[in-house]
């Protein structure tokens, strides 16, 4: 690597002669070793999923959640250094709460992504800090219904000046991915972590920009994609974790929640089965052996 030995890679916020910040690039390396995380923006909601590599048999199964809620309507999943991910989420929660205290309502997903992008970018500016060793996927649903202002106690006038605008719609699903540099884009389907290349290839097949994929199908695709992406590190055990956010009329009522057990199990089972189908070299395995894999 051209960076090593030049001295330009020893401190954050230092440009190399060809205009690169190597410390940020190294932070990306930390991300690339983390378990795969994906997000899918469906027509009626957002799905987040992550592959949690089980590092020890002694871990309490299912207890260590990696997808966090921010306010009620946003979820964040990250790949890379787990404690950095927690720091990031904690900042996101502070941003959401300060937004509420200023504007008396939930923060739009786009605004949250913007503020977090700014926060992460600030950690590339100074030699006294290191960049975040994570890439985070932020998914949320901005309510399209007219929300009461926080603390509102009455209904106000029904019409006329200060009244309601009939049938006005806003909001919808939002999905953003924030990198260690602070760079972020909006996505239809986002993937990061070790299996991101495989996952991206799978996401592209879904033709998400057409906006036809339903939330429930999105959950199933997410499970399958995590399983496909796990092929790269097949020797390790992993746990699948999935959350979703729908509109106010949908199954989660605008909240970010864990995918309910029934649907989760169905999606995971289908994902496992598709893996058996794909892999023709391997002999057919029973369900039990699959579990132990």
């Amino acid at each position: 690597m051209t960076s090593i030995g030049t001295g330009y890679d020893l401190s954050n916020s230092v440009f190399s002669p060809d205009g690169r910040n190597f410390q940020v690039e190294y932070a990306v390396k930390a991300v690339e070793n983390g378990g795969t995380a994906i997000g899918i923006r469906c027509k009626d909601g957002v799905v987040l999923a992550v592959e949690k590599i089980v590092t020890s048999k002694l871990l309490k199964a299912g207890a260590n959640k990696r997808i966090a809620s921010v306010d009620r309507h946003v979820g964040i999943v990250s790949a890379g250094l787990v404690p950095d991910g927690r720091h990031f989420v904690s900042r996101a929660r502070d941003e959401a709460s300060s937004w509420r205290s200023t504007y008396k309502g939930p923060i739009p997903t786009s605004a949250l992504a913007n503020r977090l992008g700014g926060y992460v970018q600030a950690y590339t500016l100074y030699s006294s800090v290191r960049p975040f060793g994570i890439t985070a996927i932020v998914g949320g649903w901005d309510s399209e219904a007219e929300l009461p202002v926080d603390g509102q106690v009455g209904t106000g006038p029904k019409s006329g000046s200060g009244g309601k605008v009939e049938g006005a719609k806003a909001g919808g699903p939002g999905l953003y991915m924030i990198e260690p540099s602070g760079l972020y884009w909006g996505y239809y389907g986002a993937a990061t972590g070790k299996g991101r290349q495989t996952a991206k290839a799978e996401l592209e097949k879904l033709d998400l920009s057409a906006g036809n994929l339903s939330l429930v199908d999105g959950v199933k695709e997410a499970a399958r994609i995590i399983y496909v992406a796990h092929e790269d590190s097949k020797d390790k055990d992993f746990e699948l974790e999935m959350t979703w956010i729908s509109s106010v009329d949908g199954p989660t009522k605008g909240r970010h929640e864990e995918v309910p057990k029934e649907l989760f199990d169905e999606a995971e089972k289908a994902a496992k089965q598709s893996m058996v189908g794909d892999d023709e070299e391997e002999e057919e395995k029973t369900q039990g052996e699959q579990m132990e894999e």
Partner: peptide
Amino acid sequence: AVTFSPQGRI
């Protein structure tokens, strides 16, 4: 603790 190695380790 604020320097990443080229492999992304601290």
